[in-house]
C-alpha cells in the first residue's frame, strides 16, 4: 500500500483514523484528540473513522455537564462529528461496562436511560482493526 511521506508536510491529503483511550475528565489526551481531528479536517485531510475505546467512550456521553467556564468536550465532538458527518464509533464492551448505552442497549438491559450521543455508533473492536487497515495512518490518543 502506498504510504504518505513521514514528514510533517502532508500533501496530498492523508486519510487518518483516530483512536481515543482517555475520558475528557481525566486526561488532556481527549482534548488533544479533538484539536487534532478538527485541525486535520480544516487542513483538507480525511478522517476514515473516530474510535472511542476504554475510558475514551466517555467522550460520547451525552449526559456530561461541565462548569460554564469550561468546555464540554462531548458536545464539541458531537458538533464536529455532525458537521463533517464523521464515522464515529464507541467500542461496545468498553461502553456498556461504563454505562454508555444506546436506546437499544438500554432496552436490552432493562435500564431507564440511554447515554450515548446519537452522532456516535456502537460497534466491536473489528471496527478498530478495519480502521487501522484502511486508513493511511492510525493515530492514538491516551
Amino acid at each position: 500500500m502506498p504510504r504518505p511521506d513521514r514528514g510533517f508536510c502532508l500533501s496530498p491529503a492523508v486519510k487518518f483514523a483516530v483512536v481515543v483511550y482517555s475520558s475528557p475528565a481525566s486526561s488532556q489526551a481527549a482534548a488533544s484528540a479533538y484539536q487534532f481531528v478538527r485541525t486535520l479536517l480544516n487542513e483538507g485531510h480525511e478522517l476514515y473513522r473516530l474510535f472511542f475505546i476504554a475510558d475514551g467512550v466517555e467522550n460520547a456521553n451525552r449526559l456530561t455537564v461541565t462548569p460554564q467556564d469550561e468546555t464540554n468536550l462531548p458536545q464539541q465532538w458531537h458538533g464536529l462529528i455532525t458537521k463533517y458527518k464523521l464515522d464515529s464509533v464507541a467500542c461496545v464492551s468498553s461502553a456498556i461496562r461504563r454505562g454508555i448505552l444506546t436506546p437499544e442497549e438500554a432496552d436490552r438491559h432493562n435500564l431507564d436511560a440511554h447515554t450515548l450521543l446519537d452522532s456516535t455508533e456502537i460497534a466491536g473492536l473489528g471496527q478498530l482493526i478495519d480502521a487501522a487497515v484502511n486508513a493511511d495512518r492510525l493515530v492514538h490518543f491516551g
Binding site: 483511550y21 476504554a54 473492536l125 478498530l128 487497515v133
Partner: peptide, 16 residues
C-alpha cells in the same frame, strides 16, 4: 484495564 484491552485488540486483529 490496559493489559486486557491489549489482549482484546490482539484477538480482534487475529480474528480479522
Amino acid at each position: 484495564h490496559r493489559s486486557q484491552l491489549c489482549l482484546d485488540a490482539v484477538l480482534a486483529a487475529a480474528v480479522f
